[in-house]
Amino acid sequence: MTDPRTDTMAGKTVLVTGGTSGIGKATASCLAGMGAHVAITGRDRERAEQAAGEIRTAGDGQVDVFDADLSSQSEVRRLASGVLQTYARIDVLVNNVGGYWNTRHVTADGLEHTFALNHIAPFLLTNLLLDRLKHGGPARVVTVSSNAQAMGRIDFDDLQGERSYSGARAYNQSKLANVLFTYELARRLGTSAVTANVLHPGVVSTSFGADDPGRVQQLLVPFMRPFMKAPARGAATSVRLASDPGLERETGLFFANSKAKRSSKRSYDEAVAARLWRVSADLVGLTATG
């Protein structure tokens, strides 16, 4: 894990979505300890303020709070508006928020919850903040995916799981979408000073999926928990991608255990990535170019 006593991130502004617990909180805490001005998001304002207080207590970094349910597009837009009004520059966006639901839920926008939160939220938020990221000079977009991307497939005929739903299939699809989005974003950014990378944090001991766990999770997680990474170790790759000066020009890469590696064969399909971008842009009402 990066030494939190360094000042590598001094003067940098970082937004971490889903920063109230688990990997997100550990990421925010470490970056704040490295001198960054950190903002975290959470659905519950009181819980987010408590997390921010704990992060402040652990170090000297400045921590702000934005409350937003990122499964809702109007909430994502409200968050982006608040962030843009608050910060003249954004140096790093960490798209960390995510979830797993064993049963199908529909958001206020009529989208399947897993797809909406895990893919549409980072897609929309990144696009809304992109001009500000570009404006500040070298900046980074870091998106948390999972090795589950290797089992994912983008089903354009049933993206929302209306015909057939499986919690695992929906999750795997959303994590592949994270990788496809990142690679397509990197291509679209071209020679811009903004980089885009995606990562697998490892199998981490958090409350992930606890709201609506599948049977396999219920049976296996209690036995696996002693062997899972602590959140701070799980955050190590996110922290490196957000802070390592040596990665300033690295873009369009998948990382695991803090090292670049190949992602699944499907993730390199540029036609699928471009189509997913267009479909996603249509779902959120953005103009899709290219």
Rank of each mutant, 00 (worst) to 15 (best):
T6L: 13
K12G: 00
N178S: 09
T20E: 01
R225D: 09
I120P: 12
S72V: 03
N96I: 11
T103R: 11
V204A: 13
G19P: 00
R169C: 02
Y171E: 08
A288R: 02
V106A: 02
S192F: 14
G290Q: 08
L199Y: 02
A210W: 02
Y100R: 02
T143N: 14
Y165V: 11
L189W: 11
S207T: 15
A170L: 11
V97Y: 03
L176P: 11
V65S: 02
Q62G: 03
A168Y: 10
N96H: 14
I55C: 07
D269N: 13
D67L: 05
K265R: 15
P213Y: 06
L247I: 12
V203N: 15
Q173D: 04
A273Y: 11
A273I: 13
P213A: 06
D158P: 12
G202R: 11
S243M: 03
L253G: 00
A148I: 11
A273G: 13
K134Q: 04
A39P: 01
G234T: 13
P122W: 02
L180M: 09
N127S: 04
V16N: 05
N102Y: 03
G42F: 02
G53Q: 10
I90H: 01
T114C: 07
K25P: 02
Y183E: 04
A139W: 11
I120R: 10
S243F: 04
F255Y: 13
D157C: 08
I120Y: 10
E49Y: 07
G110I: 05
E248A: 15
Q217F: 12
P213S: 09
E250K: 06
T237G: 10
L220F: 12
A232G: 10
A150W: 12
A242G: 07
I55H: 07
F254K: 00
T237C: 11
N127P: 00
P122N: 09
V141I: 11
R262Q: 15
L286W: 05
T27Q: 06
A260D: 06
R249D: 14
Q85V: 06
K259I: 08
A39V: 12
A48Y: 07
R278W: 07
G24I: 03
A108T: 14
